[in-house]
Amino acid sequence: MTLRRFGRRNPTIVIGALLLLLVTAAAIAAPLIAGDPLLITPVDRLLPPSEKYWLGTDHLGRDVYARAVFGARISLLVGVAVAAVSVVVGLGIGLAAGYWRQVDAVVMRFMDGMMAIPAILLAIALVSLNRASVFIVVVAISLPEIPRVVRLVRSVVLTVREMPYIEAAVSGGSRGRKIVIRHILPSTVAPLIVQATYIAASAILIEAGLSFLGAGVPPEIPTWGNMIASSRLFVARAPWTIFAPGTLLALVVLAVNLVGDGLRDLLDVRLARRM
């Protein structure tokens, strides 16, 4: 299938992916395309967008453009890390719980308990115990996502394990581990990819929320949440300080969700046609 045909059939994926590619490229190239996000220039406080400061400056005279570009690094990092951690951990637990009955009873009750913990409260608790850091934020957001992944994986396993080809593998002498890895794991990939995009989108939002509440990444580090938090007092005088991080946040989350929706439709159709 040519790229153009793919684009015409799956416009949401292409639009979302292009947006994400753009933001990722900017985040990687941040030191090349933007100035120092931490540089404080008190004389240039709360300047509107201009030739020198494309998106204006904040209340400490820091370049909003530079901070927004560097902030993308944290947001994307948190999104990807949370998705990766929760999917990998959740996949392992879900496969075991779905296939081995004895594991199931114990693990699932524990997961039910975990699901009851809100990410925000967990993060606030963890941050107050440790020093605020990206690592703590990733852990705090990932933990409550894990049970959701486990439930998804487990439900796929429960469906697939009833398929006659599993019985065939058993009577062909395959052991449990081989059956899980060869016959069951591949069926979880498609739904997990889709789920991972949704987790990434929500992680980016939660991270911003945590930073806004001051329970996230340390305030001097530029993140979109921190930027929105620090500019909330000056919104009336300097709306540009909140415009850049807010728009970027919305766009990135939208882009990730577009990709997720597109993938879901695409993978579903593939499965349907294969049947």
Binding site: M163, P164, Y165, A168, S171, H183, M275
Partner: peptide, 19 residues
């Protein structure tokens, strides 16, 4: 197990489509 094997009813569901 190797001495007794099975042939299934459903020619679709009894073969893993990914293999």
């Amino acid at each position: 197990r190797r001495h007794a094997q099975m042939v299934f009813q459903d020619p679709y569901a009894s073969l893993n489509p990914r293999l």
